[in-house]
């Protein structure tokens, strides 16, 4: 693997320290305690991706069947299973989209559009990494992805999750700037790339654009649970319920966010989908839950709490001299 030719920073610099107590109280629409959203990743992995000097796409020499074919299963079999489930529980998916999928599998895009699902950018392919890109290249890649979403769905892309969570120091700045260039403040205003909080937080950008980080939980991510933690399906279902119970309880003090990021090649397996359904039924069965999308949460936060949050962060940092 190649070495990165960049000056590395101690801290990404996107946000300030902001303790999880005595924050300005967030109340979600209709007095809800938890904003709940589900983010199915709809991805395309290539059979023969080009080499990237910083990350190998597949463990075996191409054709790397184990990884490629199980992800293809997600599109061929898994997608409709999860879609039917979300529909049953009144959940609009917020799609983290490998935007090349619009070209490869337009049928899936149509099914999501028919259900008024939301799309945000997850790059072009999940086998093309940001590592090693110049700023110009990364900007072009992000622009391509936002334009592709607009062309195929008519939606102005509000959110970003970098492809395969591969980042540069400029990723979030570039996403916000390309959004502005294409659609002004209607696009490019939230990120799913940071895992530092259970509430939305303001993000400091070089452009000064009003921008939020929306919790997209890695801990509740099915791929992390199944491929990294390797837990059983029933255990995963229980962890989803436990995560919800705590956020629901704390949400009475100030609104929290619960996100379930999913992948059709994992959560829709015949032996796993039952546990997932039980968790969805449990969560949506509570009264004070705002079942919503990533973009709606981000917009609501920016419109109602962003300024309060910024003022509170500045105030606390002034009082305590935290690192900025």
């Amino acid at each position: 693997m190649a070495k990165q030719y960049t000056i590395m920073k101690e801290d990404p610099g996107y946000y300030d320290y902001w303790p999880y107590e005595n924050r300005p109280k967030i109340t979600w629409p209709n007095g809800a305690k938890v904003a709940f959203w589900v983010a199915p990743n709809i991805e395309f992995y290539e059979l023969n991706p080009p080499d990237n000097p910083f990350r190998k796409p597949w463990p075996q020499p191409s054709p790397a069947l184990p990884g490629y074919t199980s992800r293809d299963w997600g599109n061929r079999v898994g997608h409709t299973r999860q879609m039917e489930l979300l529909e049953k529980y009144g959940i609009r998916g917020s799609i983290s989209l490998s935007t090349a999928l619009c070209d490869h599998h337009p049928e899936i895009i149509e099914l999501c559009k028919e259900r008024d699902w939301e799309f945000f950018s997850h790059g072009i392919y999940n086998t093309r990494y940001t590592y090693g890109m110049t700023e110009t290249q990364e900007r072009a890649m992000i622009k391509d992805s936002i334009e592709t979403i607009y062309k195929h769905t008519g939606q102005k892309c509000a959110g970003y999750l970098a492809p395969a969570l591969s980042h540069s120091d400029n990723t979030i700045d570039l996403f916000a700037e390309v959004g502005t260039e294409l659609f002004g403040n209607e696009a490019g205003f939230y990120s799913c790339d940071l895992f530092h909080d259970d509430q939305p937080t303001p993000i400091n950008l070089r452009s000064g654009k009003r921008f939020a980080s929306i919790p997209y939980s890695l801990e509740m991510n099915d791929t992390i649970a199944y491929l990294v933690q390797k837990i059983t399906p029933r255990r995963y279902g229980q962890e989803l319920k436990d995560n919800f119970d705590r956020l629901y309880k704390e949400g009475a003090e100030s609104g929290t966010i619960m996100c379930i990021p999913t992948h059709n090649y994992q959560v829709s397996n015949a032996h796993r989908i039952k546990a997932y359904e039980e968790a969805l039924e449990y969560i949506t069965g509570h009264s004070d839950v705002w079942v919503t999308t990533g973009k709606e949460i981000a917009q609501y936060f920016l419109d109602n709490y962003y300024d309060l949050a910024q003022a509170d962060i500045k105030q606390k940092n002034r009082n305590h001299g935290n690192a900025q």
Partner: peptide, 18 residues
């Protein structure tokens, strides 16, 4: 950084199907 050739942003198989 900037160690990738611009072909990394070309997608020859980006079309309908597999």
């Amino acid at each position: 950084m900037g160690t990738l050739n611009d072909t990394y942003l070309k997608y020859p198989e980006r079309s309908y199907g597999m």
